[in-house]
Nucleic acid binder design. Sequence first.
DNA 1: TGGTTAGATGAAGAAAGCTTCAGGTTAGGA
DNA 2: TCCTAACCTGAAGCTTTCTTCATCTAACCA
Lengths: 213, 213
Amino acid sequence: MPQSLKSPLSPRKTPVQVRSVASVDAILEATIQVLLSVGKERLTTTRVAQRAGVSVGTLYQYFPNKSALLQAALKRHLDEVHNIIVRTCREQEGQTLAQMATVLITAFLRAKMKDVKTSVALYSVSSDVDGAKIVQQSGIRSNKAIAGMLASSSDPLTTDPQLAASMLQGAMVGVSRRLLESTSPEKQFEPLLQELIFLACAYLKACSTRLSV
Amino acid sequence: MPQSLKSPLSPRKTPVQVRSVASVDAILEATIQVLLSVGKERLTTTRVAQRAGVSVGTLYQYFPNKSALLQAALKRHLDEVHNIIVRTCREQEGQTLAQMATVLITAFLRAKMKDVKTSVALYSVSSDVDGAKIVQQSGIRSNKAIAGMLASSSDPLTTDPQLAASMLQGAMVGVSRRLLESTSPEKQFEPLLQELIFLACAYLKACSTRLSV
DNA sequence: TGGTTAGATGAAGAAAGCTTCAGGTTAGGA
DNA sequence: TCCTAACCTGAAGCTTTCTTCATCTAACCA
C-alpha cells in the first residue's frame, strides 16, 4: 500500500519543507514582478516560473491554475494594507476624531506609496470577477476596524460609525487611486495627503456637531 | 487603376452607410452584453459578433483587434459620464458651493446607478494598461470642468480649485465604486448619496473659511 | 440598368498559453 | 547508510482564440 493516504483529487501540495516554502514565496514575488514588467495580459505561468527560478511544474504544484496564482498575490498585498489599517486603528482608540483621521490617512497613503507600482499592477487583478470579491471582503474587514476606532473616540459622533467609515474609506481609496495612477505620484503626494486630511477632519467635525449644539 | 486611393495599411473602415453605422453600434452594445454575461476573461471576438448579429469579419472591419474593441466600449461609457459632468458644471456656474456639490454628486451617482452592471463590467477593462490611460484622461477633463465650476462660485474659495476638484472627484469615484460593488447597490444608494453630499459640503465650507474669518 | 464601391461572411491558418505527467533529484529519518 | 516522501523538471498535448482573406451581397449613382 504505497500511495495510501493520497486523496485522489488533491493535486496541490502544502509546503512542508524549507525549500518549498521558499519556492512559493519566490513564485508570488515573481508574479508581481511579471505583472509589473509585462502587464496582466502577457503574464504567463511559464514566465512567472522562469522569473521565480523554478519550473512551471513546480508552480502548478502549489497553485491549481493561473487565476489562483493571481488571486493569491492580490490577497497577500491586501492583507498587508489591511494589517496596517487594523494596527493603526487599535493605536488610536480613544483619541480625537481629527487625530484619528490624520494618522489613519497618513498610514494608508504611505502604505500605498511604499511600492506604487505593485499597487498599480494589482489593480488589473482586482477587477476580475474573483479579484473583486477579495477586494470587497478586505474592504469590509477594514471598514469594521475603522468604525470601531471612530466609535471609541473621545469626541461625540452623531453619525453611524460604519457609514462614516465608508465615507473615509471611499475618499481614501478614491484619492489614493488618483494619486497612484497620476503621472508623477511623488510630486502630488504631499499636497493630496494634506488636503485629504483636511477633508476628513472637516467631515468628521461636521459629523460630531450635526445634531448637538 | 481600380484600388487607387486605398492606402496599403488601412484595413479598418469608417462607417459611411447607414447599415454599417448600425453594425458598429450593435457591436459596441454586444461588447457590453458579453462583458456582463461571461466576464472579460471569456469574452471572445466571435462571441461578441454573434451577440451583435454579425460575423467576426464584420467586427474586424471596424476594430483592428480585440483590445481596441474593449477600449472603444470603455471610452463610450466614460464619455457619457463626462458629458453629464460637464453639462451639470455649466448649469451650476455662479451658484453656492453647497449647491454645486449637491447637484454634481447627485448627477454623478445617478449616472453611475443608471446601469450599474455596465459600470461594473467596464471596471475590468479600465484596469488594463491602455484602459487606465483612457480613464485618466477622462478624469483630467472632468477635473477641469469641476474646477472651473468651483472657481465661478459666489462663495469665496481659498483653495486651489483643481485641488478641491480632485478631492471631490476622489471621494465621488471612491464612494461610487464602493456602492456599485456592494451586494445591494439599490439599498445603499440613498444613505451614501446623502452622506457624500454632507461630506462634500463640509469640506467645501471649510475650504471657504480656511483663511478668511 | 449596369458598374462600382461599401459592407458582410465564416472557414481555416497560425499562434499562444495552460496544464499534465512520467521520471529525476533532494532531504531527513531509521 | 538507505529508504521514502517531498520536491522539482520541462517537453508536449490539448484547447482556445485571434485574425485573415477570398468570395458573396447590397447599396448607390450615372
